[in-house]
Nucleic acid binder design. Structure first.
Lengths: 180, 180
DNA sequence: TTTGTTACCGAACATCTTGTTCTGTATCTA
DNA sequence: TAGATACAGAACAAGATGTTCGGTAACAAA
């Protein structure tokens, strides 16, 4: 990837996240991003088709970092072999907290909802192998509840209760959800 | 309220819900609604400030129906006295299923998310009196999880699993959530 | 039935946002 | 050094938004 492309892409991401702390996502226009990043309109559209695609790309960048060790450990069979599923949950929370420092605006407001929607897509892969089949409860329903409960945990935690540790949050989650 | 106002308001609601089954909420413009309802632009803005306000008003109309018996029974102290909390949950599901017949488009897609967000506001009032204090788990966290789990149940149910009865769905919910 | 009020129509309007296209310039890579 | 390409900057059409206005029809109260 061209150095100029990386620079511009980074400028757009920085401007976008900076704006998110002052302005809501829907109220934000492409023009706002251009002004904040100080780039030309045609340049923006050379990188992203729409504002939504920009948000999606930013989320994907984050998730690939958060879940990278997850994926790696799955491949190498050394992390998942020696840790419980509960440890993996805690592990993901650690990474999310770490990321939150740099992109605070992304986690709250209407933008936070979209973020959590994308997050759920990754979570399904993680939970699928753990949620057991159950005669009484439909499996895909149990999956939805587990994923939603985790996402809700992240939201509650990063929205004003960051003083709890990832371990504590995992305990709280397990205290509410009986299918984990 | 003037008969003409009721008529126009109803026309707008009908056009809006009809459009939702063909078009996504964000893609839908005010102009689309005007064309579908066959009313003037100034008339629309005399009723609703924005498209978002229209959606909110529609949701409020629905919730006041769904939760009306809830409120009434609270006032008369005859429903809540003779039924369990689990019955109330089932009761709400019955009303939601009933409403779904007429406004299908409202429950799915991006619009469904906004609908569920508003629904949660009402659910908090219902759950607040039931979720017990717990030394280990923060009360507002337990509330968030319970409400989110219920909302997720509604989503899963009305989105392709309507063959289950409200009683069955309540059982499934109770099978996943240990704090109810 | 009459009278005053009010909701609606429809047309026009300025304003803003979007997404595309163009030319010239600067920067990268081979 | 030479060719490719990313960016700047400006201009553009198309469409959506929200407001304003005068005329018409429907309402409610006398």
């Amino acid at each position: 990837m061209d150095r100029r492309q990386r620079r511009t892409r980074s400028l757009i991401f920085k401007a976008f996240t900076a704006l998110l702390e002052r302005k809501s996502y829907t109220a934000m226009t492409v023009q706002d991003i251009l002004d904040e990043a100080d780039i030309g309109r045609s340049t923006f559209y050379a990188h992203f088709e729409t504002k939504d695609e920009l948000l999606k790309a930013l989320c994907t960048d984050i998730f690939e970092h958060v879940f990278s060790e997850e994926i790696m450990s799955e491949e190498h069979h050394d992390f998942s072999a020696h840790s419980t599923f509960k440890d993996r949950i805690t592990h993901i929370l650690y990474h999310l907290q770490e990321k939150q420092q740099s992109v605070k605006g992304l986690f709250s407001g209407e933008c936070g909802e979209i973020f959590l929607r994308y997050l759920k897509e990754y979570l399904y892969r993680v939970f699928d192998e753990h949620i057991a089949e159950n005669g009484a409860i439909p499996h895909d329903y149990a999956m939805d509840i587990a994923v939603a409960a985790f996402a809700e945990t992240v939201r509650w935690w990063l929205k004003g209760h960051s003083d709890y540790t990832p371990e504590q949050m995992t305990d709280h989650l397990y205290g509410c959800i009986s299918i984990l």
